[in-house]
């Protein structure tokens, strides 16, 4: 019960900050309305996105790895975007697509969600389905059909950081 109210109040603060950014005024009327709405949204969603990572966020190593992860993800996005852009503009359309299966080491649902979305965000790979530990990836240029090798190619770089961030 106590943990639930703690995550609800963190969610309320987050939504209230978002409200204040969006309305861009510190009129008391706006602030009170925002606080009420933020509390209702947080209460109805049971403080959902902020339930797990409370103790997660406190460790300095995890914060450090999260920051590194953001930069790593950004450069992965830029690099693979240039790769896909090259394929799109070249007249012969050099693609070699297919769906491959990979297996993740990550256990927590949050980690799996971030991994799946990161794979989708980097062009060239697209998560089609997730079943337990198996991810089915549409790959624009299939280099290998082997599960181990494909995991190494697609997911290993992200997993290294996500394993520390949320286990």
């Amino acid at each position: 019960m106590d943990r639930r109210w703690r995550s609800i109040s963190i969610a309320t603060l987050f939504y209230w900050a978002l409200w204040l950014v969006l309305v861009q005024s510190f009129d008391p009327q706006e602030m009170i309305a925002g606080a009420v709405v933020a509390f209702f949204v947080a209460f109805l969603s049971k403080g959902e996105p902020f339930t797990t990572p409370i103790n997660c966020l406190l460790a300095p190593k995890r914060i450090l790895y999260s920051i590194i992860y953001v930069f790593y993800l950004f450069f992965a996005i830029v690099r693979s975007n240039l790769d896909v852009a090259r394929r799109v503009v070249s007249p012969s359309l050099p693609i070699n697509p297919g769906i491959v299966k990979i297996k993740t080491r990550l256990k927590s649902p949050l980690g799996k969600m971030i991994l799946a979305n990161s794979i989708t965000l980097t062009p060239g790979t697209l998560t089609v389905d997730v079943r337990g530990d198996d991810f089915y990836i549409h790959w624009i240029d299939v280099e290998t059909k082997d599960v181990q090798a494909a995991t190494e190619k697609i997911a290993a770089g992200f997993e290294k950081y996500l394993e520390v961030i949320c286990g």
Binding site: I77, V78, N81, V84, A85, R87, V88, L93, I95, P97, I99, T120, L121, T122, P123, G124, L126, V128, H138, I140
Partner: peptide, 17 residues
């Protein structure tokens, strides 16, 4: 691109960047 999945590769993610 020739099919839906490849379109998605090029379409929805080049637009993210």
């Amino acid at each position: 691109m020739p099919d839906l999945y490849n379109r998605m590769q090029a379409g929805t993610k080049a637009t993210t960047l």
